[in-house]
Computed example of a mutant assay.
Amino acid sequence: MTVLVLVLIGVLTGLTTVLFGFGGGFVTVPVIVWADAALGPAAGTVAVATSAIVMVINAAVATTATPQVVLARLRGRGTLLGLLTAGGLLGALAALAVPAAVPSWGFVIYVAVTIIDVLARPGFLRSAGLAHDDTSPRAIPTAAGAPIGAVASFLGVGGSVMTVPLLRRGGLPMGHATALANPLTLAISIPAALVFLFAQHTTNLERAVFSVGIVDLGAAALLLIGAIPVIVTLRRRPPRIPDHVHAWAYIIMLIVVLLAMLTSLL
Rank of each mutant, 00 (worst) to 15 (best):
L12D: 05
P242M: 01
V33K: 08
V69W: 15
R138Y: 10
F154W: 01
V29A: 01
A94I: 05
A120Q: 06
W105D: 09
F107W: 07
L224K: 13
T163L: 02
L74G: 04
T85C: 10
P67Q: 08
A65S: 11
A62V: 01
V209P: 15
L83H: 02
A94Q: 03
V70S: 00
G213E: 06
V56Y: 02
L74T: 06
V151M: 07
G24C: 12
A62R: 01
I255K: 03
A221Q: 03
L155S: 04
L205S: 05
F198I: 10
N204E: 14
G78E: 05
F198A: 09
V161Q: 06
Y250G: 05
A47Y: 15
V54P: 05
P122L: 10
P141D: 04
V245N: 13
T178P: 04
L259V: 06
L167M: 09
G175V: 14
L166Y: 11
L15N: 07
V54H: 13
G88E: 10
A95W: 12
V157P: 00
L8D: 07
F196D: 03
L186S: 11
G129L: 15
L130I: 08
T163D: 03
Y250T: 06
A47H: 11
L266P: 05
L84G: 03
L12Y: 06
H244W: 13
A97I: 08
A199S: 07
I214S: 09
M1L: 12
L258D: 07
V164E: 04
A181V: 02
A92C: 02
V157D: 07
V102T: 02
I252G: 05
L194T: 04
V157I: 14
A227R: 05
A221K: 05
I252S: 13
L89Q: 02
L254E: 09
H246Y: 00
M55E: 00
R169F: 06
I255P: 05
R168V: 08
A62W: 00
W34H: 15
L12R: 06
F107G: 14
M55D: 07
S127H: 13
R75S: 15
L172Y: 00
A192L: 04
T135N: 12
G24M: 10
S211V: 07
I109H: 11
A37H: 13
T64M: 12
V98P: 14
T114D: 02
G14H: 07
T233E: 14
L6W: 10
D216T: 12
A92T: 10
V215F: 10
T16Q: 11
G159Q: 01
H246P: 04
G170L: 00
A247T: 13
I252D: 01
Q200L: 12
A60C: 03
T163P: 02
A59H: 15
G171N: 05
T233H: 12
Q68L: 15
L15C: 03
I251F: 00
A220C: 10
P103T: 04
A193K: 00
G76H: 00
G129H: 07
I231D: 03
L39V: 13
A92I: 03
V111T: 09
V11W: 09
L81C: 11
V5M: 13
R168C: 03
D216E: 01
P103E: 01
H132F: 11
A101C: 07
A62M: 02
I228M: 11
L262Q: 15
R77S: 15
T63P: 11
I57V: 12
I214W: 04
F154L: 09
W105L: 08
